[in-house]
Amino acid sequence: MAKRIEISGLHAYYGAVHAIEDISMTVEPRSVTAFIGPSGCGKSTFLRTLNRMHEVIPGARVEGKVMLDDEDLYGSDVDPVAVRRVVGMVFQRPNPFPTMSIYDNVAAGLKLNGVRRKSQLDEIVERSLKGANLWNEVKDRLSRPGAGLSGGQQQRLCIARAIAVQPQVLLMDEPCSALDPISTLAIEDLIAELKSQYTIVIVTHNMQQAARVSDRTAFFNIAGTGKPGKLIEIDDTSKIFTNPSEKATEDYITGRFG
């Protein structure tokens, strides 16, 4: 069910602000692609254009093309709601619905898709929580509030919620930046397992993390404050971290700036 994403000539704006400029790349299915780069270089903005979440901010708009296999996500007859049902997202801060139980959090997306049968819901909730490596920790308290879990557990709950609807692509926006090292490790292990089924794109500030979890790495940068972010290069992760083609990439990964 994983699909390839092909982005060509993509620009994103916030009102009059040009946030990212002319990005083209291909994201391979069943692999992990990491976005790295200094703060404000547009990685998260770019990520959010891939499931049309960018445009929920008032005044925000996108130009260019994003193809999911052979479907244009920005086609004139495409409903952004339908896009988000096939391109799931995990956010920087764990954001389970505070008013819902653990079970209902995972089932939330399923109910949107019209799954109503209790037995089917039970089955998918269990499978998703197992898929997010959370089942053993919460199986005895599924009716407890999701917000009562620890930060790392909440983030895994959010991953379970995202994969419950079996998306084609899973976008992760710095999923570990609010977590401790042990929870981070748990999430990274999970990403490694999930990539056998999903196309995964992860934004991270942690270069070791990018090196550990990803197959391909894209480096973004900005020329200066107020200038739009650009894709500098994308290549196999091993190549980016050992022998990048661009000087800027090398400077960044060796810590000479940013």
Partner: peptide, 18 residues
């Protein structure tokens, strides 16, 4: 209502009413 919750729902593919 935290933006994070609203975005969580939107990202799951919820319509405005949902």
């Amino acid at each position: 209502v935290p933006t994070a919750n609203v975005e969580a729902a939107l990202a799951l593919g919820a319509t405005r009413w949902e």
